[in-house]
Write a protein that binds this DNA or RNA. Structure first.
Length: 264
DNA sequence: GTTGAGCGTT
C-alpha cells in the first residue's frame, strides 16, 4: 500500500499527475499519501530521488484517478504546511502522462500560453539529455544564491579596487612606472582567464592585500596600494605556465580552441 | 548533519 513507485507506474493511462514542490527533503510518499488521499483517490505517489545519494529531490508526483479530485487537491493542498514547509501543488507539466493543463485547469487542448510560466527549457528528446540537464541543474541548485552573492561580491570588490586605486594613485606615479597601462591590461586579461580561481582565492583571503609586515616595510612615503598580491599571483601563475608551455605555445593558446582550454 | 525554486521511475 505504501510502496508507491516501487514497482513502477501501475497504470498511467487514466491518471492525472500532480507535481508537489517545496516539500522537505525528508518527506516521503507515505507522508503525502494520507494528505492527498483525503481529497481523492490517489493511484500512485512517486518521489524522484537522487541516484547517487538516494536523497529526495524536494518534490513529488502524486497521481490521481480523477481530474476533478486532482484539481481539488491542488486547490486544497497548494500552500499547505507539510513537515514545517509550505508545499506547492500543481499539475505536472512534463512527464509520461502530461495532462493538458491550462492555468491549473484541465482543458481538452494543449495550453497555448503557460499561465504559470514555470517552464525553464523545452524538454529534451532523449533521456540522456534529461539526466544531463538534471545533473547540471542539481549541481548548481544549492549554489543558486551563492553564485549571485559571489558575483555581486566580485563586482563590488572590483569597484572598490578601482576606486581605491584611482584615489590613491597619482598621475605622477602612473607615469613614473610607465607600465600602468600594460599592467592593467595584463591584469585584466589574467583575471578574466582565471576568474574562478581568483574569486575563490579572494574569498578565502580578501584582506590579503593588507599585510602588517608590508606596512612596516612600506612607510607612508611609499604608496600603500602597492601590494604584490596580483604580482605574486601572476608570477606564480606564469611560472608553471611558461614552464609547461614555451613562448610559442602562448600564441597557439590564443587560438579559439574550447576543448584545448587550460582548465582541462 | 546539511541545501531549495524545482517536473518522474520498475
Amino acid at each position: 500500500m505504501s510502496h508507491f513507485g516501487r514497482s513502477g507506474p501501475p497504470d498511467i493511462k487514466d491518471t492525472y499527475s500532480l507535481l508537489v514542490l517545496n516539500i522537505t527533503f525528508r518527506t516521503t510518499a507515505d507522508d503525502l499519501f494520507p494528505l492527498f488521499d483525503k481529497y481523492g483517490k490517489v493511484v500512485d505517489i512517486f518521489i524522484p530521488r537522487d541516484r547517487r545519494t538516494g536523497e529526495s529531490r524536494g518534490f513529488a508526483f502524486v497521481r490521481y484517478k480523477y481530474a476533478d479530485e486532482a484539481q481539488k487537491a491542488v486547490e486544497k493542498l497548494d500552500g499547505r504546511n507539510v513537515d514545517g514547509r509550505e508545499i506547492m501543488v500543481q499539475f505536472a507539466k512534463y512527464g509520461p502522462n502530461a495532462e493538458r493543463i491550462h492555468k491549473g485547469r484541465i482543458v481538452e487542448a494543449l495550453p497555448k500560453s503557460r499561465g504559470r510560466s514555470r517552464s525553464r527549457s523545452p524538454r529534451p528528446k532523449y533521456k540522456d539529455d534529461y539526466y544531463r540537464d538534471k545533473d547540471y541543474r542539481r549541481r548548481s541548485r544549492s549554489r543558486s544564491k551563492g553564485r549571485y552573492e559571489r558575483d555581486r561580491y566580485h563586482e563590488r570588490e572590483r569597484d572598490y579596487r578601482r576606486r581605491s586605486r584611482s584615489r590613491s594613485m597619482s598621475p605622477d606615479y602612473h607615469k613614473s612606472h610607465g607600465r600602468g597601462r600594460g599592467y592593467d591590461d595584463e591584469r585584466e586579461r589574467s583575471r578574466s582567464r582565471s576568474i574562478d580561481s581568483a574569486s575563490d582565492r579572494r574569498s578565502l583571503s580578501p584582506r590579503r592585500s593588507m599585510s602588517p609586515r608590508k606596512s612596516s616595510l612600506s612607510p607612508r612615503g611609499s604608496p600603500p596600494y602597492r601590494d604584490e598580491s596580483p604580482n605574486k599571483r601572476s608570477s606564480a601563475k606564469r611560472s608553471p605556465s611558461r614552464s609547461a608551455s614555451p613562448k610559442g605555445r602562448r600564441a597557439i593558446s590564443r587560438s579559439p580552441s574550447p576543448r584545448n582550454s587550460d582548465e582541462d
